[in-house]
Design a protein around this nucleic acid. Structure first.
Lengths: 181, 181
DNA sequence: GTCTATATACAGATAGAC
DNA sequence: GTCTATCTGTATATAGAC
């Protein structure tokens, strides 16, 4: 577990990158193998099927979320601000895993949809004690979802209309005033 | 223009339905033709290519948004409440067009991404006069995006964790208190 | 305007060499 | 552990009959 095969991680990285930048349809085993610098046969040694490859991304997401919830609960600026800020981090491993899993979900992968719902619930559970009531928690979660959605639409290259810098600070202040317990 | 071919609209409806319920990958010309009750050749008479079919969905979205912005600006409960409520309407022609276009965008269709960005900007322009400041407008738009995102993930069958009924009323009240001018 | 039949390309997956 | 070669299914698109 402490030293997973090199090529395996490269393949997973490449698959995520294509999913994010070019969409689910472009993320073929052929394209993934090419981007990872291995042959199709080489890829299939590590992931015996397309389904196994997709599960690889989902498993990676689950592990990263576990770490993130720990970090969130101990964040100096508080969990809500941490949560919203981390919704627009690009090239963060966790954000890449979520974006990639979203593509799989929208491509019809049921496990991916389930994983995203579970992940969202885990975040909700962690944030609930810090919000006033159900509507406040909805507000925080939906603003975060909205930030992700715009990030997701942006692809990976074109910057989306997502608040940054001072505008992001103002948004966080507004949400916290409305929702924070 | 006042009496477009019957089959053409059926094809467009079927294509949207498959995009929403099964994802972009399942929305092939074959599956669309079958669902619309025509042959592949018949479909290709109306839409000469996959690209033309996708453009048909995008054009339909543009027309529906124009109508919606008119309706929003004259809504009795105010534009913000109207806007948020209409973010979770399922089986509304406009919502179906947005969901379908989102699938195309996430599948890599650049025109679809552009159309969604344009649509979002048109809504933003219409809502701006009714919000306090930039952060308030961001809040309203992002909550709406979040509602759509969850709707989109839900597919068309499994209900997503989207607020309904009294919970939705409470959310709207919260957003309006924070953002309404 | 709608059909069938077919050409061409590419997807996922297998077999077996090295 | 990684490669090439190949099988099978299916997608888009064309040709031409009705």
């Amino acid at each position: 577990m402490s030293r997973p095969p090199h090529a395996r991680e490269s393949v997973l990285d490449a698959f995520e990158a294509i999913l994010i930048d070019e969409g689910e349809r472009a993320a073929t085993m052929d394209a993934t193998a090419r981007a990872a610098g291995v042959s199709k046969g080489g890829l299939l040694y590590h992931f015996g099927s397309k389904d196994a490859l997709e599960s690889g991304v989902i498993d990676r997401l689950d592990a990263l979320v576990t770490d993130d919830i720990t970090a969130m609960s101990t964040a100096p600026e508080g969990p809500i601000a941490y949560f919203l800020r981390s919704s627009v981090m690009q090239n963060d491993p966790l954000d890449r895993a979520i974006l990639a899993t979203s593509r799989l979900a929208q491509g019809g992968n049921v496990s991916a949809s389930t994983a995203l719902r579970d992940v969202r619930e885990r975040w909700g559970d962690a944030l609930r004690p810090h919000t006033k009531d159900a509507a406040s928690l909805d507000l925080v979660m939906l603003v975060s979802d909205g930030l992700y959605f715009n990030n997701a639409l942006a692809g990976g290259n074109i910057p989306g209309p997502v608040p940054r810098g001072a505008e992001m600070d103002a948004l966080i202040a507004l949400v916290e005033r409305a929702a924070r317990r």
